[in-house]
């Protein structure tokens, strides 16, 4: 009896590892193919499109890729400006709003929090027509500001920051700073923000990645080639001009993924912890 149960335990264990390893391969395989094919010639890819080892055509692919409309450096810089701006707006103003919700006792506090919960789920997509018309009328299309400033109001981030502050903020610190004559705004910037650093870091990562990956809004607002973000650049690879240049397409895709890979593998511990904490998000 004992032996049998051990055996079934053993089989169960094998199944578990088999499934986990299969899923892990499923995560890696597409990206692996992408990276190796980025170094292979179109002819090699047509002969056999799977290769686990890289080839020697990387420079040729780079030349073909950059010879057409794809400009990864420009996309990278534009995306960097937008994502950095949006991230700064999100974390700073969400912290400020969360602090107002936790530290002060004002009459509309509870209704305001209820309101934030209520609007948390409104996706930008369903309001895009009005947003586009509004921006068109004030001549703000092909401008980065309409992609940065809306980040000031990020209800989900406020919610997360509030939960964090509720758990960590002791009002005594605030009171003693007041006795020392510190002004409220000074207290927030010099005392509260440092306390919130862990929450700010987590939310900054998610806000940055979310903004970096956003396709819908930039696609609507930015029509000038010089203003294209990384995801719009990527969408050019789907066009006819790269139809037969397989190696270059894989290379272009790789270039957009590499910065994310670097961020992810450097910060994966914090990112996973952040997802677990912010389970009540997005």
């Amino acid at each position: 009896m004992r032996v049998k149960s051990n055996k079934s335990l053993y089989i169960g264990k094998i199944i578990k590892y088999f499934v986990c390893i299969f899923l892990a391969i499923l995560s890696i395989f597409p990206f692996w193919i992408m990276l190796t094919n980025a170094t292979r010639s179109t002819y090699e890819i047509q002969q056999n499109s799977i290769s686990l080892i890289p080839s020697t055509y990387l420079l040729d692919n780079i030349r073909v890729l950059l010879g057409k409309s794809f400009n990864p450096l420009k996309g990278f810089i534009n995306s960097m400006i937008i994502s950095t701006g949006a991230t700064l707006c999100t974390v700073y103003f969400s912290s400020l709003t969360a602090y107002a919700l936790v530290a002060y006792d004002w009459r509309l506090r509870q209704p305001f929090f209820t309101f934030i919960l209520a609007v948390m789920m409104i996706p930008a997509q369903v309001t895009s027509i009005g947003f586009y018309q509004f921006m068109y009328r004030v001549h703000m299309t092909n401008n980065f500001l309409p992609l940065i400033l809306p980040a000031i109001a990020s209800p989900a981030t406020v919610f997360f920051m509030r939960q964090y502050l509720l758990a960590t903020l002791s009002i005594d610190i605030v009171n003693s700073a007041r006795i020392d004559g510190a002004r409220e705004f000074y207290i927030f910037n010099k005392i509260i923000l440092p306390i919130m650093k862990p929450a700010v870091a987590t939310q900054a990562i998610f806000s940055f990645v979310g903004s970096w990956n956003n396709l819908f809004m930039p696609l609507i607002l930015l029509t000038d080639n010089d203003k294209y973000t990384m995801p719009i650049m990527v969408s050019l690879l789907r066009g006819d001009i790269y139809k037969t240049e397989f190696g270059s397409v894989y290379l272009g895709l790789s270039l957009t993924v590499l910065p994310l890979f670097v961020i992810y593998f450097m910060l994966s511990k914090y990112i996973i912890a952040g997802v677990a904490l912010g389970g009540v998000k997005e």
Partner: peptide
């Protein structure tokens, strides 16, 4: 009053970039 003051940026951004576009749409 600081509770209200610190919420002004959020409320303004929400009114301009969310509520107005919703109504406009």
């Amino acid at each position: 009053k600081y509770g209200y003051i610190f919420c002004i940026p959020f409320v303004l951004a929400f009114l301009i970039f969310s509520l107005y576009p919703i109504i406009y749409t």
